[in-house]
Amino acid sequence: MPPLLDVRDLEAGYGPISVLHQLSLTVEQGEIVALIGANGAGKTTTLMCLSAVVKARAGRVVFDGRDLVAGRVPAHEVVRLGLAQAPEGRKIFPRLTVLENLQMGAYTRTDHDAVGKDIEKAFGMFPILRDRQHQAGGLLSGGQQQMLAIARALMARPKLLLLDEPSLGLAPQIVVQIFDVIRELNRQGVSVLLVEQNARMALKVAHRGYVLETGRITCTDKADVLLNDPRIRAAYLGE
């Protein structure tokens, strides 16, 4: 079976600056893949490129059998194909209510009854969102916003969920809660590409990992192998 996401030799950047160099990675159906790396390595650019918000300059992004780069699929069509993202910084719509934020996550869907059920499901997963559903998204705490960002991305019923730094700036117990949710989602069949600076947490939850350094993949292996690799431990796990 071909991988759900197959990225080959991806090049991307901003203006005169090249950020990604011949980046290749895959995500298999049902997998959690972690992409770890330091600040400025190009992790967010990679995800934005997969969501077609940043234009790829070369290479292929084959998702579910379709080449997004060659097909010049615009950002707003990518979601429809089953690729959703909870972006860095959460990007909650600050003056839409929690409920409206979730509804925007389902913007591409036309099965309104099922959307209602999925909103209920999201509230089941994150009960705090139910209590706050009529509050403006901008009034939520950081952890609640992260929950909303994930729930919002899930409203598109994605096959692949891109998560950009879900642990950033959150209290440790909230981080644990978020990662439990990621594991649970994966059990329900959602494949996940997880970008993290918190490499330990990411590799603990992931099946496989990639290490990104200044726009290049320098290392890839099973997550537990990476966790025990002395170089990775020294560079990313603070040992």
Binding site: S51, V53, A75, H76, E77, V78, V79, R80, A84, Q85, P87, K91, I92, F93, M104, G105, Y107, T108, R152, A153, A156
Partner: peptide, 8 residues
């Protein structure tokens, strides 16, 4: 940007 990520 977030709007585009929602498919808008």
């Amino acid at each position: 940007t977030a709007a585009r990520l929602m498919g808008i």
